[in-house]
């Protein structure tokens, strides 16, 4: 013990000074960079607002979205009173009511719950499948052929019969298993959307991996004996994060819209179960008379997607060490 101490004293000049504060962790850097990104903060804020809104909104605005009030149908949003005092509007229904007198604000809140849940779940599931297939196909030569032909196969399948078949086979068992038609349908819809939308992500990730794995830093990693799993996790995945982020944003929009298309086929939620996509498509025929009925859900879908996009941008920048710290 003493020997060492004396040696240290000898080489005192070579010794580092005590660090004045603990080293900054990587994640702290990431967070600092992320905070600088205004778009990301806005996106995150809006998403948080929407998420809290749809989660707790029903407690603040407790009108049921399916409550009919046919005498008070076709109310306009309350702001139309500003320029037209004769219009049927009022604070009882701030966003107005639809053709059966259902409150639009309440439909937006409840619809948002479902749309957000379906959108996120389907998007995340589709990204997981797509990334896994893409990485495996790009990195392992033996898996490439079979996985990419599987992708070709799924791309070729006609969606409508596939969806109808899925309903025939799985609706009853799922409804029974989950005890209620809504949760059974939720699982079915999320799986159908995810299982038919992962292919683009898979092809893109594979394309990037094919190029990346021939680069010098992978060769370097391999030559020091890094395992395949570690190469993928530490070296390849961080480098394909940006196309995955783009896929995620586009995928969220697609999932929210696809959900509404499915309900036309009788595959979606029951018809009196509002979702943003369904509210939008139901209102298209009346868009001249009641523009708010298309604009409100359209705005919410767009803003959600835009927020996710900015969030993705911010995250991408924050995770990229070359941009970080500049």
């Amino acid at each position: 013990m003493t020997d060492q101490t004396s040696e240290m004293e000898v080489f005192g000049a070579l010794q580092d000074k005590e660090p004045s504060k603990p080293p900054r962790s990587q994640w702290r850097d990431v967070w600092d960079q992320f905070r600088k990104h205004k778009g990301a903060l806005f996106g995150g804020g809006f998403l948080l607002f929407i998420t809290l809104g749809v989660l707790f909104g029903p407690y603040l605005w407790d009108l049921a979205p399916t409550k009919l009030d046919i005498r008070n149908k076709d109310w306009r949003p309350v702001y139309t009173l500003l320029w037209d005092s004769d219009v049927k509007a009022g604070w009882a229904h701030p966003f107005g009511t639809d053709q059966l007198g259902r409150d639009i604000l309440s439909q937006m809140i409840h619809g948002g719950r479902v749309s957000m849940a379906v959108g996120w779940a389907a998007m995340v599931l589709s990204l997981l499948i797509g990334t896994a297939v893409g990485v495996a196909a790009g990195y392992f030569k033996r898996a490439d052929f079979i996985l990419m032909r599987l992708t070709d196969l799924v791309l070729s399948l006609p969606i409508l019969p596939l969806v109808l078949l899925a309903v025939t086979l799985f609706r009853q068992p799922l409804t029974k298993f989950f005890g209620s038609p809504e949760s059974g349908m939720f699982v079915l819809i999320v799986s159908v959307i995810a299982l038919t939308s992962w292919m683009q992500t898979a092809r893109i990730v594979r394309g990037d991996i094919l190029a990346l794995k021939e680069r010098e830093f992978i060769l370097a990693a391999r030559s020091i004996g890094t395992t395949d799993g570690k190469i993928i996790r530490r070296h390849l995945l961080p480098n394909v994060i940006s196309p995955i982020m783009v896929s995620a944003t586009l995928g969220l929009a697609t999932a929210i819209i696809t959900e509404s298309a499915l309900s036309f086929l009788g595959v979606g939620f029951p018809s009196d179960f509002p979702t943003w996509g369904k509210l939008l498509s139901d209102a298209v025929n009346r868009m001249q008379e009641f523009p708010e009925r298309v604009l409100l859900p359209g705005f919410l879908i767009s803003m959600t997607v835009l927020s996710v996009n900015y969030l993705g941008d911010g995250l991408r920048d924050a995770l990229d060490p070359r941009i970080r710290g500049r």
Partner: peptide
């Protein structure tokens, strides 16, 4: 069957 008027009817009758 899926049809805008029928879905309105369904909602009303449910009510």
């Amino acid at each position: 069957s899926t049809n805008a008027v029928r879905q309105d009817f369904q909602a009303l009758i449910k009510d």
